[in-house]
Amino acid sequence: MASQGTKRSYEQMETDGERQNATEIRASVGKMIDGIGRFYIQMCTELKLSDYEGRLIQNSLTIERMVLSAFDERRNKYLEEHPSAGKDPKKTGGPIYKRVDRKWMRELVLYDKEEIRRIWRQANNGDDATAGLTHMMIWHSNLNDTTYQRTRALVRTGMDPRMCSLMQGSTLPRRSGAAGAAVKGVGTMVMELIRMIKRGINDRNFWRGENGRKTRSAYERMCNILKGKFQTAAQRAMMDQVRESRNPGNAEIEDLIFLARSALILRGSVAHKSCLPACVYGPAVASGYDFEKEGYSLVGIDPFKLLQNSQVYSLIRPNENPAHKSQLVWMACNSAAFEDLRVLSFIRGTKVSPRGKLSTRGVQIASNENMDAMESSTLELRSRYWAIRTRSGGNTNQQRASAGQISVQPAFSVQRNLPFDKPTIMAAFTGNTEGRTSDMRAEIIRMMEGAKPEEMSFQGRGVFELSDERAANPIVPSFDMSNEGSYFFGDNAEEYDN
């Protein structure tokens, strides 16, 4: 993207840094990872977990959730003011799984939030270390993106479920800051804005008074975040219109849905970061690795190297396929839920299948599930090659597409044709070009129609051997075009429920 120079890199967003050079960025990201790792080690000690239990991804998720809940100030305040039966607002906890007599047992633990905050700050040299908290939120978000298709949420806001490739980060909490905003897809931002506008339509006082002023500035800020994701002048001009509207209503909703559809071809720039579970960072720190000293990046080879040398386990339900569970977590670790499966298959070195073909449910185990038949197995999170994460949407291309997802959002900077089903997408653009945004709409449609099938995206960008740390010898991959490109292809993934 041309304006790259004016933006802070995501590592800076990730670490609240002012302008830093590459070495400083690597050190501050490393410091953040160190903090998460030290916190995780301490929690495993508190909970008396064995090494194996500490490497269980379900335990990692519970521990991450506990610290996120302990620092969720708004919710904590709300819980104190609106006490609900049987919930102690000062405590947080969740299921911890232990191996007892050759069987997995679930144990519900409860801790004072104050105590968890103390352990977290102690692991982070006394700081609140917001960057580390956001990092864990993005890992949870990436896992949700890989596990669930947001059909219901899309339909509720009037969008087409086939636009799911635009929904990265749709389950990120509001408090995820600049680093969170960077990884949100165009569809996620559109959905947040539509929800806001709908509230304004239904509630006369939404934009009024002292609160209304705050609401208005939040609305304009979200519009600017979305505008910054678009790469064409016409899309940005249309966002200006939406932002400046005196009284946002149905016309703005129409414009936003139009823009979301246009992003299936004229893709937005959305950041991709490899955020790993805390149970990967903990053992690495415990083994003596100093992330701050060595430096770390979320968008280069580092996460690949770390996963190459990590042992992570997962509980497996009786009829689940461990290899499929591994694929789910591998995609989440690489922030690749909406990437082209052919690119992923090449990088991973084994075939990556669409969601609907995987015999696996989510990673988390519900409290009512029976533990008797639970097994555990090693997650295979290694890769054959590594590639640089991208934040450009890439230019655009036609490809055989599917009944489910009709476009992709690249996660890796790797040369390819970008699949999208042009006739299906263009069919949504018939007729409606009147109104105050008509010239911009016409211009956007013209650009979409001009998108050429034979153009290559990320020209000359390749993948790298894991021994090639400096990215000196790019390998331009070859793809098996007979395979499906979309992950949520004609899909039956479970729906995400809060």
Rank of each mutant, 00 (worst) to 15 (best):
M1Y: 11
S3E: 00
Q4C: 08
Q4P: 00
Q4K: 04
G5S: 15
T6V: 00
T6E: 00
K7T: 00
K7S: 00
R8S: 00
R8I: 00
R8H: 00
S9Y: 08
Q12E: 00
E14W: 03
E14N: 09
E14D: 14
E14I: 03
D16R: 10
D16Q: 10
G17Q: 14
Q20P: 15
Q20S: 14
N21E: 13
A22M: 00
T23H: 15
E24I: 12
E24W: 02
I25G: 14
A27Q: 14
S28D: 00
M32I: 05
M32P: 08
I33T: 13
I33M: 14
D34R: 07
G35R: 07
G37W: 11
Q42V: 06
M43N: 15
E46T: 13
E46V: 08
K48S: 11
L49Y: 13
S50W: 00
Y52T: 15
L56K: 03
L56V: 13
L56I: 14
I57A: 09
N59G: 14
N59Y: 05
L61Q: 06
L61G: 06
I63W: 04
I63V: 14
R65N: 13
R65T: 07
D72K: 04
R75G: 07
K77D: 01
Y78D: 03
E80Y: 13
E80M: 05
A85M: 02
K87H: 02
D88Y: 00
D88Q: 05
K91C: 06
G94W: 07
P95K: 07
D101A: 13
K103F: 00
M105H: 14
R106M: 10
R106I: 06
L108P: 14
L108A: 06
L108C: 14
V109N: 01
Y111V: 13
E114Y: 12
W120A: 10
Q122W: 01
N124S: 13
N124R: 04
A129H: 08
A129Q: 10
A131Y: 01
A131G: 04
G132C: 08
H135T: 04
H135L: 05
M136R: 00
W139S: 08
H140W: 08
H140S: 11
S141E: 09
N142T: 03
L143Y: 05
L143F: 08
N144S: 05
N144C: 13
R150I: 08
R152E: 05
M159F: 01
D160S: 01
D160Q: 09
R162D: 03
L166N: 01
G169W: 06
T171P: 01
T171V: 09
L172K: 09
L172I: 15
R174C: 03
S176P: 06
S176C: 11
G177L: 06
G177V: 10
A179D: 02
G180C: 08
A182C: 04
K184G: 11
K184Q: 09
G185P: 02
G187S: 09
G187Q: 03
G187H: 05
V190M: 13
L193G: 13
I194H: 01
M196E: 07
M196T: 10
I197G: 09
G200V: 07
D203Y: 08
N205C: 15
N211M: 15
G212M: 13
G212D: 08
K214H: 15
T215M: 03
R216D: 03
R216P: 03
E220F: 06
R221F: 08
L226A: 09
L226G: 12
L226H: 11
K227R: 08
K227C: 09
G228T: 13
Q231W: 00
Q231M: 15
A234S: 14
A237F: 01
A237L: 02
M238T: 07
Q241R: 06
Q241Y: 03
R243T: 07
E244T: 05
E244Q: 07
E244S: 07
R246D: 01
P248H: 08
P248K: 05
G249H: 07
N250D: 10
E254C: 11
D255H: 08
I257L: 15
F258S: 06
F258V: 07
A263Q: 03
A263N: 12
L266Q: 06
R267E: 07
R267W: 07
G268W: 10
G268V: 15
S269A: 15
V270D: 10
H272M: 05
K273N: 13
K273A: 03
C275I: 14
C275V: 11
A278N: 13
C279G: 12
A284S: 07
Y289P: 02
D290S: 09
D290L: 07
D290Q: 09
K293S: 14
E294P: 00
G295K: 06
Y296F: 12
G300D: 05
G300F: 09
G300A: 09
P303E: 05
F304T: 10
L306F: 03
L306G: 02
Q308V: 13
N309C: 01
Q311S: 15
Y313I: 08
P322Q: 11
A323C: 11
W330S: 10
W330C: 08
W330K: 05
M331A: 08
A337R: 11
F338T: 12
F338L: 06
E339A: 06
R342M: 13
R342C: 07
V343N: 14
V343E: 10
I347W: 15
R348T: 12
T350S: 13
K351G: 01
R355L: 14
G356K: 12
G356I: 10
L358M: 11
L358K: 09
S359L: 12
S359W: 05
G362K: 07
G362I: 06
G362H: 08
G362S: 01
Q364A: 07
S367F: 06
N368S: 12
N368I: 11
E369H: 14
N370H: 13
D372R: 02
L379K: 01
S383V: 14
R384Y: 04
Y385M: 13
A387S: 14
A387M: 02
I388T: 09
I388F: 01
T390P: 09
T390F: 05
G393P: 12
T396P: 04
T396L: 13
N397T: 08
N397R: 15
Q398D: 01
Q399N: 00
R400T: 07
R400G: 08
A403F: 01
Q405V: 02
Q405G: 03
S407I: 04
S407G: 11
Q409M: 13
Q409W: 12
F412E: 00
F412M: 15
S413H: 05
S413F: 08
L418H: 03
P419N: 02
F420N: 11
F420E: 00
I425L: 05
M426H: 03
M426A: 11
F429G: 01
F429W: 04
N432C: 15
E434Y: 03
T437V: 02
S438K: 00
S438P: 08
R441Y: 13
A442M: 12
M447S: 12
E449M: 06
G450N: 13
G450S: 07
E454D: 04
E454M: 04
Q459T: 11
R461C: 04
E465A: 03
D468E: 09
D468K: 08
E469S: 11
R470C: 02
A471I: 01
N473F: 14
V476S: 00
S478N: 00
F479Y: 14
M481G: 09
M481F: 10
M481P: 01
S482H: 12
N483D: 08
G485P: 00
S486A: 02
S486H: 02
F489V: 00
G490F: 02
A493I: 04
E494I: 10
E495G: 08
Y496N: 09
